[in-house]
Amino acid sequence: MAFSFRRKSAIPGFGLALGYTIAYLGLIVLLPLAALVLRAAEVGPGGLYALVTDPRVLGALRTSFGLALLAAATNAVFGMIVAWVLVRYRFPGRGLVDAAVDLPFALPTAVAGIALAALYAPNGWIGSLFEPYGIRIAFTPLGIYIALVFIGLPFIVRTVQPVIAECDREIEEASATLGANRWQTVFRVILPPLTPALLTGFALAFARGVGEYGSIIFIAGNIPYISEIAPLLIVIKLEEYDYAGATAIATVMLVVAFAILLAINLVQAWSRRRLGHA
């Protein structure tokens, strides 16, 4: 090979494979995203700011980000418990429970959406239990929160689970030998090394929650300023042919998504430095 771009190798096909990869990546992913950036540039920073600070847009962004944060926090707690139980304990049906964790990945979001709406509607199996106490779940922000918990759970479990499995039991034994009780061992020996994985899972669940659409719109009620999420507002703006408005919201969401991605990479680099593994 004439060029020294890559290290010498006896294996063929580098040019073809990399060329195809970059061409396909460019065509399917980068060119369309560039169209969004271009459109945002056309609108200009001032225009974008004006569009994004519109009260209805701000409300939708607040709903999406706030509830995604709340749901990710809920999942951090329960996902952690689920991961712990799946790794450390043996009980009948464990395999089934382990497989079920991936259901939100596999179940189409629209199916999850109508199923949750049916469950939590005032006349649904769960909604009817709360209705007598005046608590409405479906068609309120509470419903969005439920859908986001559903969609985010596997992110926490599947990032934390392998790290718990790798935990060295001898460290726990050493901790106990040195006189720590179980609580102290859990909170001061076991949990700290899990933090990077937990943060990564949290960020993934949060990012997914902010962009989620299908599982939410059926249960949300979609009332502007109250239970309208940012992705739905993009769809509404598009239906009104307000491309600039849709672009502005999408730009904010894209920037935040990249910031989260960067944060995840930083957390993982930091944990590699501190703990010596990913």
């Binding site: 969004l36 962009g211 989620e212 598009l238």
Partner: peptide, 17 residues
């Protein structure tokens, strides 16, 4: 990258194109 992009935004970029 596509995993971090909201599905709605994924649709939008093709509409813009």
């Amino acid at each position: 990258l596509p995993f971090s992009v909201s599905p709605v935004v994924a649709g939008l970029v093709y509409v813009l194109l």
